[in-house]
Amino acid sequence: MRVSRTPRPTAAAPPEWVAGAAWVDEIAAPEGASHLRVDSVHFAPGARTAWHSHPLGQVLHVTAGTGLVQCLGGEVHTIRTGDSVRVAPGEWHWHGASPTASMTHLAVQEVAEDGTEAERGSHVTEAEYPARPAAR
């Protein structure tokens, strides 16, 4: 067992991955035999990821605020504190804050054997965001 008490510095999310302001705190990085990555990501209102997919899927767990998530071809869903989203392997999706509220989530995924964590596509357009969220 290893206990880590030294927090890693918060990093701004790179603009090729996120439209708007977002910050990432690394919770766990792949190490040794583990392929697990966990990040806490905080999105300012209106900030969202580009379209992307993960080779082994992803779980999002909202820890604060209100956000939006959409899988390619599907409806935009509102997500709130306590909600979890499971994205299937290879499924193209985006996620981020709602237009008027910030949102923080844990992003949990396994890194593929070849080191691939995600494949990035184009940014979500203004026409796509904010599409009308599906009723909850």
Rank of each mutant, 00 (worst) to 15 (best):
W51V: 14
V59Y: 05
G74L: 15
A47K: 01
A64D: 02
T81S: 07
G74Q: 13
T63R: 00
R80D: 02
T63A: 02
L56G: 04
A50H: 08
T66S: 06
H77K: 11
Q70D: 03
H54E: 11
R80W: 05
V76W: 09
V76R: 15
E75K: 13
S53T: 10
S53K: 11
R48I: 07
V69A: 06
G67H: 05
P55K: 15
C71G: 09
H77W: 12
G57W: 05
G73K: 13
H61L: 14
A50F: 04
L72C: 08
T49R: 02
A64L: 04
Q58D: 07
V62R: 01
G74K: 11
G57A: 15
G82K: 09
T66A: 05
L60I: 14
G57D: 08
L72T: 10
A50N: 06
L56R: 13
H61R: 10
V59A: 11
T49E: 02
C71Q: 11
G74N: 09
G74P: 00
Q58Y: 10
T81M: 11
T78N: 04
L68T: 02
G82S: 07
V59T: 14
T66V: 15
V62E: 00
A64F: 00
H61A: 12
R80H: 03
E75W: 08
L68P: 02
H77S: 14
A64S: 01
T78A: 14
T66E: 04
H52V: 12
V69L: 07
V62N: 00
E75A: 15
A50W: 01
V69P: 00
T78S: 10
R80M: 06
V62D: 04
P55A: 15
G57T: 13
A50K: 02
T63F: 01
G65R: 03
G73N: 12
S53N: 10
L68H: 01
R48L: 05
L72Y: 03
L68S: 00
I79D: 05
G74R: 12
H54A: 11
T63I: 08
V76S: 10
R80A: 08
T78D: 04
H77Q: 15
E75R: 14
G74T: 10
L72H: 00
